[in-house]
């Protein structure tokens, strides 16, 4: 038997290693989404941003959270780089494409389009962070002061096409999660007849609820339901 070295570099270069990284970072990002969505949902108190800003301030200044944030950035980068590597490997694995393929008969389009959905999300991520996170952290870094994120939100979401971009981002997120949530469990080998159903239901619910929540924010602001 050819002895494969058990070193970690072999693991991370292997197909399964890459899947595991994809799944782990995916789940990590999912956990981030929960927190992000929860805090943003504070705007629904409709209290002029008091609760929201309280938590926003906590997130922006608490040293533990700030340290974790580095992990978050790393998580994003790993997830993205790993995704690109996967895409390359998978692209190369079939140099000649089928002339005619009826892939819908055996799999879901969004499962097959994780690379595409991921790219859309990446574009969205760039737009989104350049709206809020980057200016805010930049300001903190330069002036030592946080920006008024709540007000920024109210301003930015007055422009219809930005709202549209955000909604479309959430739609991409929905499809990405619909596959990604369950897929992460499968990649980590967490597949068990007793729990598959639960993972399935939770995954689907999560993929619907979280993007819906996110999408509702620019919309309610745009329509002036929250000020």
């Amino acid at each position: 038997m050819a002895t494969a070295a058990k070193s970690n570099s072999v693991f991370f270069k292997s197909s399964i290693g890459k899947k595991v990284v994809m799944g782990l970072t995916g789940l990590f990002l999912i956990s981030f989404l929960i927190i992000h969505a929860t805090i943003n949902a504070m705007i629904f108190y409709n209290d002029g941003g008091v609760t929201f800003s309280h938590w926003g301030h906590f997130m922006g200044t608490n040293p533990i959270i700030r340290t974790l944030e580095i992990g978050l950035v790393a998580g994003f980068i790993l997830h993205i780089v790993d995704g690109l590597m996967l895409w390359k490997q998978n692209h190369d694995a079939r140099p000649t494409k089928y002339a005619y393929s009826n892939a819908n008969a055996n799999s879901k389009w969004y499962s097959r389009s994780m690379g595409l959905l991921g790219t859309l999300l990446l574009i969205f991520l760039v737009i989104h962070t350049s709206h809020f996170w980057i200016p805010n952290r930049a300001n903190q870094f330069i002036h030592g002061e946080e920006l008024n994120l709540y007000q920024m939100m109210l301003d930015i979401f007055q422009v219809w096409y930005i709202v549209l971009i955000y909604v479309l981002g959430c739609v991409s997120l929905f499809w990405h999660l619909l596959h990604g949530f369950k897929s992460a469990f499968q990649s980590l080998g967490l597949n068990h007849t007793k729990y598959n159903k639960t993972i399935d239901i939770v995954g689907t619910a999560f993929s619907i609820v979280v993007p819906l929540l996110f999408a509702s924010m620019p919309l309610v602001i745009f329509f002036g339901l929250i000020r």
Partner: peptide, 21 residues
């Protein structure tokens, strides 16, 4: 598990993205 996966990768197959096809 290690040897078979290593060989699978060396043969140039793609990776699994859990599409279920």
């Amino acid at each position: 598990a290690l040897a078979m996966v290593a060989q699978m990768d060396a043969e140039g197959f793609g990776n699994c993205t859990n599409t279920g096809a």
